[in-house]
């Protein structure tokens, strides 16, 4: 940021100097984060961290895939100390590309349950997000609802809204279907979903909920924090969440998380930031900024979030979402799930 304020007056200089400027600003008392979590969700945390520790945080947001490519290419010369992203599939992929170093500290182990951390400590989950069924209270009897798989039943024909298969949340959910059943069975479920669609899969979760409210469809799948945002705007919206697969595998969950870069110039600072992010204080902010579930089990969920009650989580190892992601995408493409 400081670079930019003087840049306009020395335009030509900026061409060559901006990268050097970063190098100079780099020192023991600052940490650099590449993040695919959006600015407005991380900035308040970093501000609070700097207040607590005096360590400055520089960050660059971007799309997960692009940032991973950039980190790979920067290799040993990277300025990044930490990579922060959403979806375990992305974390897993970054780990397989050798971007992270193993970090196992007592603080992290006591703050974050082991199923939300990489077994080798390459990455740490920092928040939990659940993807479950949302339904119209006007047109759906909740007793008809049961599982994700059940939404492939022909009784939902013309009543289902789903998010596009290009979104990582959909890919991970389908990966879990492949994991729990088989490719064939998962393929049948996807075909059933596609047959039941009331509209072309939506680009955004918010579009799904709008479609249900306006009567285009009756049920859909959404991440819970989008629902939280909607009821904050309109508390009387005729929609409700239904916890899927409570008698079987449990609600599909995913994480957002972070890992320390292998060639981090400031490993110490990065670990400090990671530990701080797992602390009760940070976790409360982290989860409530986006109405997600805290990864630290000692921290209570946001009030609205807790009001939906407790639910059984899918205990599938989250690395599977990464391992099976390509299969999931292929399957959806073959079955015509746009």
């Amino acid at each position: 940021m400081n670079i930019k304020t003087w840049a306009p007056s020395t335009l030509a200089l900026a061409l060559t100097v901006s990268s050097i400027g970063i190098a100079q600003a780099k020192s023991e008392d600052s940490v650099t984060v590449y993040s695919s979590r959006k600015e407005h969700l991380i900035k308040p945390l970093f501000v609070s961290f700097t207040k607590d520790t005096g360590i400055k945080v520089m960050y660059l947001t971007g799309k997960s895939g692009a940032l991973i490519e950039r980190l790979k290419l920067e290799g040993k010369n990277t300025k990044a100390d930490m990579f922060m992203t959403v979806d375990a599939g992305n974390l897993w992929y970054a780990a397989t590309q050798g971007l992270f170093q193993a970090v196992q500290t007592q603080t992290l182990e006591s703050n974050i349950p082991s199923h939300l951390r990489d077994p080798k400590g390459l990455w740490t989950g920092l928040s939990v997000r659940a993807r479950t069924i949302v339904y119209s209270t006007e047109r759906v009897n909740p007793t008809d609802l049961s599982t994700y798989e059940n939404l492939a039943d022909s009784k939902w024909a013309g009543r289902l809204c789903l998010r596009t298969s290009k979104k990582i949340y959909t890919k991970s959910l389908v990966a879990s279907m492949i994991y729990h059943h088989s490719k064939n069975r998962a393929g049948d479920i996807i075909s059933g979903w596609v047959n039941n669609l009331a509209a072309i899969p939506n680009a955004k979760d918010s579009h799904i909920m709008n479609a249900i409210v306006s009567g285009q469809c009756d049920v859909g799948l959404v991440n819970t924090y989008y629902f939280a945002r909607l009821i904050a705007q309109n508390p009387n919206v005729p929609l409700k969440l239904f916890w899927a697969n409570q008698d079987t595998t449990g609600v599909h969950v995913n994480v957002s998380g972070a890992g320390v870069i292998k060639y981090a110039p400031n490993t110490k600072g990065a670990i400090k930031l990671l530990e701080w992010l797992s602390s009760a204080k940070a976790q409360a902010i982290y989860a409530s900024l986006n109405k997600e579930y805290p990864a630290n089990q000692n921290v209570a969920s946001d009030e609205v979030v807790s009001s939906w009650g407790l639910f059984k989580q899918d205990k599938m190892n989250l690395a599977q979402t990464g391992i099976l992601q390509a299969d999931a995408v292929k399957l959806m493409q073959i079955k015509g799930y746009r």
Binding site: I3, S18, S19, I22, K38, E39, H40, L60, D205, S206
Partner: peptide
């Protein structure tokens, strides 16, 4: 979005970041 240096967020980036989160 991919190539910008630190601190060089543009208005287009801001539009994207907010709308990608549904805001």
């Amino acid at each position: 979005y991919l190539l910008r240096p630190f601190g060089w967020d543009t208005l287009a980036v801001q539009v994207y970041e907010l709308s990608a989160e549904g805001l």
